[in-house]
Design a protein around this nucleic acid. Sequence first.
DNA 1: CTTTTGGATGATAGCGATAACATACGCAGG
DNA 2: CCTGCGTATGTTATCGCTATCATCCAAAAG
Lengths: 344, 344
Amino acid sequence: MTKNPDGKMAEPPTMSDVARRAGVSAMTVSRALKEGSHVSKATRERIAQAINELGYVLDQSAGSLSSRRTGFVAAIIPSINNSNFSDTARGITDALEGTGLQLLLGYTNYSVDREEELIEAMLKRRPEGIILTGGSHTPRGRRMLEQAGIPVIETWDRPAQPIDKVVGFSNGEAMELLVETLAGKGYQRFGYIGGTTSRDTRGSQRRAGFVRALERLGLPSDRVISFGVPPISMEQGAQAVVNMLERWPDTQVALCVSDLSAFGALMECQRRGLKVPDDIAIAGFGDYEIAACCHPRMTTVNVDCYGIGRQAALKLTQTIQAASAEPPEPITVTGFRVIEREST
Amino acid sequence: MTKNPDGKMAEPPTMSDVARRAGVSAMTVSRALKEGSHVSKATRERIAQAINELGYVLDQSAGSLSSRRTGFVAAIIPSINNSNFSDTARGITDALEGTGLQLLLGYTNYSVDREEELIEAMLKRRPEGIILTGGSHTPRGRRMLEQAGIPVIETWDRPAQPIDKVVGFSNGEAMELLVETLAGKGYQRFGYIGGTTSRDTRGSQRRAGFVRALERLGLPSDRVISFGVPPISMEQGAQAVVNMLERWPDTQVALCVSDLSAFGALMECQRRGLKVPDDIAIAGFGDYEIAACCHPRMTTVNVDCYGIGRQAALKLTQTIQAASAEPPEPITVTGFRVIEREST
DNA sequence: CTTTTGGATGATAGCGATAACATACGCAGG
DNA sequence: CCTGCGTATGTTATCGCTATCATCCAAAAG
């Protein structure tokens, strides 16, 4: 930290300081700092030098108060420690590249109350748009979003009553497709491993899809282990599969709410000397890196996490820019596909 | 988005709107919104009601211009898609809870140039402090940090010339400890798997520690595979171990720059029918969830990622608050320990 | 030589909040 | 009944920047 000779903190220089030093007005400095405005080359250079000498950094919060553009968008994800969501965040960042918009990221730990707090905290900073994960919010959170006057994008889900725009897919249908694919290979006795339903909406929908598909196929759908508070960990997946094998020893295939719990289950089976997929088959959800790399490689459902982020950010920037031009489609449905590998 | 009858966007209400509706001055509204200021109960309630009716949300960017406190701290990490760093981010968030400070998170993808961009982008928003990963920055990035007039905390490393404060550990020493521990178990022919040196400073230091420890022990230290651009993935770890076994088939133990590459190597060995640790032992670095859960469970080095974040944030808030009181220690050294498991 | 045009720059007035000071009022103590 | 003080509220002046309009001037056009 730079200090004055008297030991007190030096006040950072302002635009006027730069202007004075360069012998121009503050307005000209402001222009010089902005792309595509008319400032003569000589002036521009004098200003650049003054900025350099003073170590000046533009105060964007002051600027945005004046221009009424804060230059950032907010995104709220359940967890950053989950590569599915961090891939989405990466997609957002990449799509924002070059738009002059910056990402303000927050995470909820899968709590809607924490989400409400975050929504408020973010809205206080006046983002130009906001991207959410899922369509479940507290009533107050929802109301704040509706009244914020900015584009709102819900992702990773297909809410029955979208607030504004949506980029997502049906988690239930994706799980149904996985069940059908595996049933097509001859599996009949399916088990499901997931967390308790309360917090993780996407998890609940996957489980509902599991049950729906089996009922449609006329197969038993009661082998469901709900274990632990979502998101369930690798270790919890390991414990759950033990639990499942105790209750229903003849289970042929265990579907898991995510690749992480599936991986835990897979390792636990190996530890107990079970052959996967011969003794028991295992499939996950999400197509994490680990699913492609573990041994045996894991069957899973790929959902275009990165693409969800990209498209959400794209829709956002389109909505912001095209204030009057034709707005983008309100709902984008992203794809998913079953990746069959060695574990089934 | 709320729109007026004429179809244009409704301007969000300001504090004056609230004040008018509640029959008080804007200043009183400002006070009512702030803890511990004297506003009568009746007035407070009238204001709360007006806020509710209008759906008002405080504009913090305007407030911070006036109060000269933006209420957030910036943190820059290499990747959010890496649980070590996201654990650090979680530690920061948790330690910031209740301080009125919010976290603005950015990630560099392990690029110092991207770091420089981020530093500038963040500084433009006038954070009250900034937390960085590592001690390698571009000269310009470093200069901006020095001149910013805010506390700077470098983490995950022990820079030779710290900018300001440090919360970290020596990656080299940690790797030395791992080598010594394994040498103590009788291993003699060590291999190392890591990325090319250019980008990942911490990775380079771990490799240097590997070499140092072996030289000190009088063991060969040339079995080093540098493969791929950091951060190296599970898949790259798998490829690297194949490469290593081709070049030095009698390698007894492979140390990897992180648990992720170690896991890839472990799975690849199993795929090739090698017994771990009998045919080859494998150890990682970082103590990720996967290391505790894979089969066989992986020996690794635990570094207190979460604690690094917590302590960095703590040091930051102490520095901010105790402007004149005694400032915190400039350097905090966090611990690490070898976790011996089944893979060695 | 006048007019037009547009680039370069400056002056002024906010953006929406809060700091700092000012005012009004009620109640305890003399 | 006055002084003194603390609570409750209002007024004013910025915070650092940019939108907007005004001005000046040189070069192109007529």
